[in-house]
Design a protein around this nucleic acid. Structure first.
Length: 512
RNA sequence: GGCGGCGUAGCUCAGUCGGUCAGAGCACACGGCUCAUAAUCGUGGGGUCGCGGGUUCGAGUCCCGCCGCCGCUACCA
């Protein structure tokens, strides 16, 4: 059985879960659900990143220990994913013992292999950024442009990872794995960065103690990024196996935002090489959701009212309360192609909700149920094998499958909706509501029910609850997500004979 | 500055190797229908395919230049 391992970034417990987090997580969830439906053994990992100076500072401000602070925030992420019907198989926290063991083992291995050595680094340091700043990017008075506070001259004796030793190996690896980073343009970014020359990186800190201790020098803790990336190995048992990564590694799929390309496409593969394991097979980069084209804009928020909000101020749970889980999931998956930046707006959600969910899918369900009730006594007839829709369905299944396969939920859903539109058109052409009950009418409605069954299967990764409801209403037992594709989506699998239920609209229309 | 990308119907975008590629969805208009959530179905786009040259029998689709926009150019998660 094929193994499918997909990860999200682990989220820093510095701020509350927002729409940006939800975007990445729901996309990963939908892809994971798709792979379960096609019968893969799936491991879907998400979690929280809990070390580092910023967490320590935030905890301090709240007069809490860093651990207590992390213990308070991590569940908020878990709860948000539950509210979004995210079915992750594991939720990793970097403060867990299994992770400490994995980090220490991984980096000890790199140390033993000679790729970590002592050194010193000095420069202007912004505490807010937790980063050194080049003089050229500072505002007058040596002030950090992001945090508006003075930077400090900091010189540290640290351990350095010899990233520079991996330039050629990385280029060679990318040459041999041309599709490992997608979209292509993001791969180019990583490549040009590597070609520009790689410097060694300091990977430990002595200024704080909120981190994973360095095994060969307990005065140091690992720098957060070098701790965080290892989570992808922790979850598959790296700490305890030999290299413990057999069936899940390196065929992993890292879903990340474009702002962390360098860490995942340069540092991380080099670290893996240094530790003696293969780099991750695939990094799928997504873009940003924008509000009002920029960072700020007027947007309506749940409950009405209008004020300027940032994307990071929009709580996913508030959107779920307003629209329902599946419409939000659908919107996050359908509105923007994965990899591109896209607009996120209240108006956009309403508009797509009405067009795709209420008018197309929901209305099709309603009209079919009503006519089956009046012309077929409420019992769903079987489809016709020679139906024109059979060909459409086959094409749609094939292209939706291909789209899910290449991490393109946007395309998968778009093509799935083509079957809905064609089914509406087919009904319009046949007008079963005007005809006398009989084989002709049965055939038309059987086709429509078959189409709904297939739509429920193809859209289940995006809208599990709705698709299960469609499944039930058209008289089928079980749940779409328990069916095996592609077999279950073949034309002719709708059995007929079940009770078709007329029920309130799946998606009541909303006014702007 | 260097490297990379983008600029196609009101909006969001498709357009593989140059020759029915001038398209889709949404929005809008008109018509049909009334099973359905004022839903649905059909019809409608004279769009200089950013601008100017060039190659070619023929170019959104290749080459050169220009204009506009954007990303990356290291130790922030």
């Amino acid at each position: 059985m094929p193994h499918f391992y997909v990860t999200t970034p682990i989220y820093y417990v510095n701020d509350a879960p927002h729409v940006g987090h939800a975007y990445a997580t729901v996309n990963a969830d939908a892809v994971a659900r798709w792979h379960r439906q096609i019968g893969d053994e799936v491991l879907f990992l998400t979690g929280t990143d809990e070390h580092g100076q910023k967490v320590a500072r935030a905890a301090e401000e709240h007069k809490m220990s860093p651990q207590a602070w992390a213990d308070r925030l991590a569940p908020r992420f878990a709860e948000t994913w539950a509210a979004l019907d995210v079915a992750n198989d594991d939720f990793i926290r970097t403060t867990e013992p299994r992770h400490h063991r994995a980090v220490q083992r991984f980096l000890q291995r790199i140390f033993d292999n000679g790729y970590i050595e002592p050194g010193s680094y000095a420069g202007w340091y912004c505490v807010g950024c937790e980063a050194y700043k080049d003089e050229s990017e500072l505002l007058p008075g040596r002030v950090c442009p992001d945090h508006r506070r003075p930077v400090e001259w900091l010189e540290q004796e640290n351990y350095f990872f010899r990233l520079s030793a991996f330039q050629d190996r990385l280029l060679e690896w990318y040459r041999d794995h041309p599709h490992s980073v997608q979209p292509e343009t993001k791969r180019n970014e990583a490549l040009s960065f590597i070609k520009g020359g790689l410097q060694d990186i300091s990977i430990t800190r002595t200024s704080i103690d909120w981190g994973v201790p360095v095994p060969w020098d307990p005065n140091h803790v690992f720098y957060v990024w070098y701790d965080a990336l290892v989570n992808y190995l922790t979850a598959i048992g790296y700490a305890d196996g030999d290299d413990g990564v057999g069936e899940w590694w390196p065929s992993v799929h890292h879903l990340i935002g474009k702002e962390i390309i360098r860490f995942h496409c340069v540092w991380w593969p080099a670290m893996c090489m240094a530790a003696g394991i293969d780099p991750p097979a695939h990094v799928q980069v997504h873009g940003f959701l924008l509000v009002g084209g920029e960072r700020l804009s007027k947007t309506r928020v749940a409950g009405g009212g209008e004020r300027a909000v940032k994307l990071t101020e929009i709580a996913p749970t508030a959107l779920v309360d307003d629209f329902g889980v599946d419409p939000i999931r659908y919107h996050l998956l359908r509105e923007v192609p994965l990899g591109a930046d896209g607009e996120f707006s209240y108006e956009g959600i309403v508009s797509r909700y009405n067009a795709d969910l209420a008018n197309n899918l929901g209305n099709l369900m309603s009209r079919v149920a009503t006519v089956v009730g009046s012309k077929c006594g409420g019992t769903g007839p079987a489809p016709r094998l020679e139906s024109r829709l059979a060909g459409v369905a086959a094409e749609v299944v094939a292209s939706a499958t291909a789209a899910w396969e290449r991490f393109a939920p946007h395309d998968a859903l778009e093509t799935t909706w083509r079957l809905i539109r064609e089914t509406n058109a087919e009904l319009e052409a046949a007008e079963p509501w005007r005809a006398e009950p009989g084989p002709e009418v049965d055939g038309v409605l059987g086709d429509a029910l078959q189409a709904l069954q297939i739509v429920a299967l193809l859209a289940a990764p995006a809208m599990p609850t709705t698709c299960a409801e469609v499944w039930r209403r058209i008289g089928l037992t079980g749940r779409p997500e328990d069916q095996r594709l592609p077999g279950a989506a073949r034309w002719g699998t709708y059995p007929g004979g079940g009770a078709v239920e007329k029920a309130p609209p799946l998606f009541p229309r909303r006014s702007q």
